[in-house]
Design a protein around this nucleic acid. Structure first.
Lengths: 227, 227
DNA sequence: GCCAAAGCTGACCGAATGGTCAAGAATCAA
DNA sequence: TTGATTCTTGACCATTCGGTCAGCTTTGGC
């Protein structure tokens, strides 16, 4: 269905590229805030500094604009999905996993909220992706986690619930930003805060799943304390 | 602002009570799925089996209906906020906390999504609540957690981040239900699944925060394994 | 300088939006 | 039975929605 149309390439003149960028940025904000139905092209156009007709000229329709935003977010996400193998150090992989998910939430909070809104609404546009690509990705990581557990490198926790735990706890700081700020009384979270939260989540997950270092040949029962 | 209008009492005739219930249930579904702006009174009326005029007759306006739903959800939430004291067993408190949050998500998934949608949109109707009531609640629990840490009953983790971790990971199964089902390939999560997930989260949090039992006078370094 | 292509946009369309209202139907205490 | 209160609802309102289109200006290769 997506045919051969420039999915994210930089064809077209400089004018087109600039205007499309402005529209996409504005649309991401508006869709994230009000959902697909609640967002209006009028508001998107105003935030992009263009007449509504111009938005439709570049994007074709509200639906196409929305789908394009979702696809852009999925691409960002996929850029994070570097491969892992059972030979890797579980602690390092989990730590890197948490850190990179946290950075995506940090760098693209509107995109993160857009995605959340889509899922909240029952994922009408993403169902295929969820039960296809993403499912495969989860299953392959789950297999690695399971092998780690079999080798005694971590507790035999259900890998899928573990992945959901990491996803939810990291995405929380983008999706529920309003709640986090209201409760902490802050106006924004600093890079330092994010760093501390990342450390906290990493520590709890690794310790909570009983992750052990692979290097020592036999690790009978000693507790690693920390790091 | 809420004045003395029946916040949730059962005054009015049986007709009124029945119709209001139907409207509230339908509205919770529609608002949860499409957000405040995206929801239409027409759709709510259809799902409630009433003409649109009737919805407005009972609820006054879209805004009032929405606020009433939010308040109802906050009441359910508040019913969970039983007091805790530093004398309690940390493991028991955290376990009960996770379990009851999980049950609310389970029992009121639409309400949970409605709340999530409100926060996603910047919490325009709940900002006061977040930075008032809820903030106080969090701060008071955080103080208890901190005392536990001081007494060596758990690691010195930041209590606020810990609360957010529990909130996000439990609410995930209601808010991101579409994602969870798509990835697991299931049509619904069973009570058994929920029980297992609850156990998993409880174990990871308690172990991950190094929670120890208070009873033994001196608990130098023994690890509690489980339970 | 020419001219096709690309960019731009106000006017306009039917449909749907939240909300009002008046007039009738059902209910209920007396 | 009466009379007041509650309930019900279709017609209607101004506004906004996503989308179309014709006609204009600007751009850029030749």
């Amino acid at each position: 269905m997506a045919k051969a149309e420039h999915p994210s390439e930089q064809e077209g003149g400089a004018i087109r590229r600039r205007n499309e960028q402005a529209i996409l940025a504005a649309a991401e904000r508006v869709f994230a805030r009000h959902g697909y139905r609640g967002a209006s092209l009028q508001e998107i156009a105003e935030q992009a500094g263009l007449p509504k007709s111009n938005v439709l000229y570049y994007m074709g329709s509200k639906r196409k604009l929305y789908v394009r935003l979702l696809e852009r977010m999925m691409e960002r996400w996929n850029a994070m999905l570097d491969d892992i193998s059972p030979e890797d150090d579980p602690a390092e992989v989990l730590s890197a996993f948490i850190r990179s998910k946290m950075q995506i939430s940090r760098r693209h909070p509107e995109g993160s909220r857009l995605f959340a809104s889509e899922i909240l609404g029952g994922a009408p546009f993403l169902q295929e992706y969820l039960s296809g690509e993403l499912r495969d990705w989860v299953q392959s990581r789950a297999a690695v986690f399971r092998e780690w557990a079999d080798r005694g490198l971590m507790d035999p926790v259900d890998p899928v619930w573990l992945i959901f735990l990491i996803w939810s706890s990291t995405q929380h700081y983008a999706d529920f930003e309003a709640q986090v700020l209201g409760i902490t009384g802050r106006e924004a979270l600093s890079d330092d805060d994010l760093e501390r939260i990342t450390d906290f989540l990493t520590r709890v997950v690794i310790k909570g799943c009983g992750v052990r270092h692979p290097d020592p040949a036999a690790a009978p029962r000693g507790q690693p304390a920390h790091s």
